[in-house]
Design a protein around this nucleic acid. Structure first.
Length: 728
DNA sequence: AACCATCGACTTTTT
DNA sequence: GTCGATGGTT
C-alpha cells in the first residue's frame, strides 16, 4: 500500500481545489474540471486516497472511462502509486458491461458463446434484413435505419417501447428494429449499444444481482461525464444507493459528442436526482499561456447554456495568437510548413507540433505540403488496426469457429478468397435459411447436396473442409498458432500476397501483426488465470471480445514527427505548438450547424477544445478560397475568430503581394455588407423554394452564389438574374 | 462470377 | 479529390 511519505508528497503537490476534490467526503461529488486543470491526476489520487485513508479495498472501487486508452492510463498511474490495483474495476462502460454480461450470461438471456459485432458488421446485417424484408434500400436507407436503432437503444428503448408513430419511416424502422432484435437474439450476437442496454435490463430484472454490485462498489468514479448518454446515465443511477458514493468528473464546455447521443443535461439531471451534490471547480490551468486562456475564455463566453467556469493560470503571458488569412488551402498549407520550419529553427522539435482541423478531408493538402517539405508527420484517426479489412477477414473466420451461426461472419468469408461461390449461390442459401429459420452455415450445409457437381459445388466443399479442419484445430492449437493456421488454411495470406496494389506489404504486415496480437493475448490470459492453455477453445472467445471492444491503438509511437488530427480526436491532448487550420464559416463552424443554436454551441465548444490544446503558441489559419468536395467556394473567416478579443490576435500576411492574385481581392464584396446576402443566409427562390447560401463567387453583375435548396440540392445562381429573397 | 468504369456523395467517432 | 456503390462487360 501507500507509505505516509508518498501520501504527504502527493497532497502537497496539489492546489487547494484539487486537494478538496481528492479528499472530499461528499457522497455525491461533482468535479467541474476545466481543460488542463489536472483532472486525471485528481481522479487517480482520489482513488489512492480512498484506498489508504478510508480503507476502501481495490475491488470496492469502480472507475468508468470512455476510451480504453484512458482506462489503461488510469490503471497504470494507480498501480504506480499504490503498487496493487489488480482487483480494481477500471474500464469503459462497454468493457465493464461486457464483463458483467459474461458473468451473468444466463440471467441476461444470452448464450455463453455470444459475440460482439462492430458498427461495420451491424450495418451489413441491417442491409441484409432490409433486403430479406423486401424493402427497397432507397426507401429504407441502411445507415439511417442503423442510426435509428442505435438511438433507440441508447435511449433504453426496445422495439416494443418505441411509441407508435404515423410517420412512415418510424413505423418501418421500428419493424426493422424488431426483426433485428429477433435475429441477434437467435444467433447470439450483441452490438455495442446492446451491451449497455442488456446490463441495464439485467439489473432491473434481477434485484439480487443489482444488489450485489451496489453493495460491492462503495465508490464509483466517472470520467468525462459530459459525454454520457441516456442509457449510461441510467446504468450509473441504478448502481447508486444511500450507502455508496459517486464522484463524477467532467467539463460541460468540452462536450463535443452531442451528435452521437451524449447529453450535457445529465450534469443537471445529476443535481436533480441527488440533491446533496457537492460541486468543486478546477479552474487553475497548468497547460497554456494566459493569452491562450484569455482567448478560450472569451470564445466560450458566447455560449448561453453553461455551468460557468473560467480558467486562469499563474504562468506566463506568452505570445499573441497569430492569424493568417491564406489565399487558398495550398497557401494555407505552405504557411503552416513555413511556420513549422521557423519553430524548429528556433530550437523546437517536430513532436511539439499538432495541426488540428474540423474534418478529415482537410488533411490531404496539408500532407502534400509536409511531404514536399520532407517533414515527418503522422495522421491520427484513420482506420484502426482491428478495423482493417484483411484483419477483419481473418477474425471473421475465427468468429465462425466460436459461433457457427454468426451469419455476418459467414457472409464475409464464404467467398474469400474467391472460390467461385458468388452472389447467386449466397442468395439461394439465404432463401433456404430464411425459410427454415436456420443460420446461413446450416442452410449452406443443407443446400450443398442439391448442387450439381461443378465449380460452385467444389468451392463450397472446399469452404466446408476448411472450416471443419479449423474447428478441429481450435481444440488442439494455442491461440497464436491457431491464428497462423487460419491464415494459411483459409488461403487468405496467399490471397493477400498475390493481390496487386501498393498496400500489399502493409496488409501482409497487418496479418503478421494479428498473429502477434493473438500471441500476446494468449500470454496475458495465461498469466491472469495462472495456467497454460494449450488450445484455443477457452481463449478464442475472450480474444474476439477484446478485439471487438478495443480499437487497437497499437500504432508504433513514432519518433519525431508532427501530428495531424481532427479537433475531436485532439480532446485530452496537449501540444506546445498548435495550428487550427480551416477557420472558415461553413467549414468551422460546419455549415450544417449554422442554422441551429444548439449545434452552433457545440461547434464553439469544439473550437474551445482546439484553443485549449495549445501550451505555448497558437496559430489560426483560414483560406479565402477553398476547393472542397470537388467544387471551389469562397469563405468568410470563421465567426469564432471575431469572438476572440482582437488585442490577443496578431494578423500575419506572408508575401501577400506575390501570393494573392488580383482576382482574389474583390471576391468577398459580393457577399459583404452592400448586398442583402451573406453565407448561411436563408433565401427563397421562385422555382426552387427555400435554401441556404453556402458559398459565393465574383462581384457586381457576375456575382453568383451557391445555394443549397431543401428540395433541389445545390445550385449556382447569378444574383443579377435569380430573384432571391432573403428569408428571416 | 469476376472485373472494370462510371456516378455521386461528402462532418465529427468510441465502443 | 477520393471512396464506395452500382451497372455493364468479359
Amino acid at each position: 500500500m501507500l507509505t505516509d511519505e508518498v501520501k504527504d508528497s502527493f497532497l502537497e503537490e496539489l492546489n487547494g481545489a484539487q486537494r478538496q476534490a481528492v479528499t472530499s467526503n461528499a457522497q455525491r461529488l461533482l468535479v467541474l474540471a476545466g481543460a488542463g486543470s489536472g483532472k486525471t491526476r485528481v481522479l487517480v489520487q482520489r482513488m489512492a486516497w480512498l484506498m489508504t485513508e478510508h480503507r476502501v479495498l481495490p475491488h470496492q472501487l469502480l472507475a468508468v472511462t470512455f476510451t480504453n486508452k484512458a482506462a489503461a492510463e488510469m490503471l497504470r498511474r494507480i498501480e504506480k502509486i499504490t503498487g496493487n490495483a489488480s482487483r480494481l474495476w477500471v474500464g469503459t462502460f462497454h468493457g465493464l458491461s461486457h464483463r458483467i454480461l459474461r458473468l451473468h450470461a444466463k440471467e441476461a438471456h444470452l448464450p455463453e458463446n455470444f459475440q460482439i459485432i462492430d458498427a461495420d458488421d451491424q450495418l451489413r446485417l441491417i442491409k441484409r434484413l432490409i433486403q430479406e424484408r423486401g424493402w427497397d434500400d432507397e426507401l429504407c436507407e441502411p445507415k439511417r435505419a442503423m442510426g435509428f436503432i442505435n438511438r433507440q437503444k441508447d435511449e433504453g428503448k426496445r422495439a416494443q417501447d418505441v411509441s407508435i408513430s404515423t410517420l412512415p419511416d418510424v413505423a418501418m424502422f421500428t419493424e426493422l428494429y424488431r426483426l433485428y432484435e429477433q435475429h441477434c437474439q437467435r444467433f447470439a450476437i450483441v452490438d455495442f449499444a446492446e451491451i449497455l442496454l442488456r446490463v441495464y435490463e439485467l439489473w432491473r430484472q434481477n434485484p439480487d444481482i443489482l444488489a450485489y454490485y451496489q453493495q460491492r462498489f462503495k465508490h464509483i468514479l466517472v470520467d468525462e461525464f459530459q459525454d454520457t448518454n441516456t442509457i449510461q446515465y441510467a446504468w450509473l443511477k441504478l448502481l447508486c444507493t444511500q450507502q455508496n458514493h459517486i464522484t463524477i468528473v467532467g467539463d460541460d464546455d468540452q462536450s463535443i459528442y452531442g451528435w452521437r447521443g451524449a447529453k450535457i443535461e445529465n450534469i443537471h439531471r445529476f443535481h436533480k436526482d441527488f440533491p446533496d451534490v457537492v460541486t468543486i471547480r478546477l479552474e487553475q490551468n497548468y497547460r497554456s499561456t494566459s493569452t491562450i486562456l484569455a482567448a478560450a475564455n472569451a470564445l466560450i463566453a458566447h455560449n448561453a447554456s453553461r455551468l460557468g467556469k473560467e480558467l486562469w493560470t499563474q504562468g506566463v503571458v506568452g505570445e499573441p495568437l497569430t492569424l493568417y488569412g491564406a489565399f487558398n488551402e495550398i497557401d494555407e498549407a505552405r504557411f503552416i510548413v513555413e511556420r513549422i520550419r521557423a519553430w524548429c529553427h528556433g530550437g523546437g522539435s517536430f513532436e511539439d507540433i499538432a495541426i488540428l482541423y474540423r474534418s478529415n478531408a482537410q488533411s490531404r493538402v496539408l500532407e502534400q505540403a509536409l511531404r514536399q517539405a520532407n517533414i515527418a508527420y503522422r495522421v491520427y484517426g484513420g482506420l484502426r488496426f482491428f478495423d482493417r479489412a484483411e484483419v477483419k477477414d481473418v477474425l471473421a473466420y475465427m468468429r465462425l469457429l466460436v459461433n457457427i451461426d454468426d451469419d455476418t461472419a459467414f457472409e464475409r468469408v464464404l467467398n474469400l478468397p474467391p472460390r467461385g461461390v458468388g452472389e447467386r449461390t449466397l442468395a439461394s442459401i439465404r432463401e433456404l435459411a430464411q425459410k427454415e429459420q436456420i443460420s446461413l452455415y446450416k442452410a449452406a450445409k443443407q443446400y450443398f447436396p442439391s448442387i450439381p457437381l461443378g465449380r460452385i459445388s467444389n468451392g463450397l466443399r472446399q469452404f466446408f473442409e476448411c472450416i471443419e479442419d479449423m474447428l478441429v484445430q481450435v481444440k488442439m492449437l494455442p491461440l497464436s498458432k491457431l491464428t497462423q493456421h487460419v491464415l494459411e488454411k483459409s488461403g487468405l495470406m496467399q490471397y493477400v500476397k498475390t493481390q496487386p496494389g501498393e498496400r500489399t506489404t502493409a496488409r501482409v504486415e497487418n496479418l503478421h501483426e494479428l498473429v502477434q496480437a493473438a500471441s500476446q493475448f494468449h500470454q496475458s490470459y495465461d498469466e491472469m488465470f495462472e495456467q497454460t492453455s494449450y488450445h484455443s477453445e477457452d481463449t478464442l472467445p475472450s480474444f474476439l471480445s477484446e478485439v471487438a471492444l478495443d480499437a487497437g491503438d497499437r500504432e508504433a509511437t513514432q519518433e519525431s514527427c508532427i501530428k495531424l488530427m481532427t479537433l475531436h480526436s485532439a480532446k485530452g491532448l496537449e501540444f506546445p505548438l498548435v495550428f487550427l487550420a480551416g477557420m472558415e464559416d461553413g467549414l468551422f463552424p460546419h455549415h450544417r450547424c449554422l442554422q441551429d443554436k444548439a449545434l452552433l454551441e457545440e461547434e464553439r465548444r469544439l473550437c474551445y477544445v482546439g484553443l485549449t490544446r495549445a501550451m505555448r503558441k497558437l496559430y489560426l489559419t483560414y483560406a479565402e478560397k477553398r476547393a472542397f468536395a470537388g467544387l471551389s467556394g469562397v469563405n468568410r473567416p470563421s465567426r469564432f475568430i471575431d469572438e476572440i478579443p482582437s488585442q490577443l490576435i496578431e494578423a500575419m500576411n506572408m508575401n501577400a503581394k506575390i501570393m494573392m492574385p488580383q482576382t482574389s481581392s474583390p471576391k468577398r464584396i459580393a457577399l459583404n455588407d452592400d448586398l442583402p446576402f451573406r453565407l448561411g443566409q436563408r433565401v427563397l427562390h421562385q422555382r426552387f423554394g427555400e435554401g441556404v447560401i453556402i458559398s459565393g463567387d465574383g462581384s457586381g453583375e457576375t456575382a453568383r452564389v451557391q445555394v443549397n435548396f431543401a428540395n433541389e440540392g445545390r445550385k449556382w445562381l447569378v444574383l443579377a438574374y435569380a430573384k432571391l429573397e432573403p428569408v428571416e
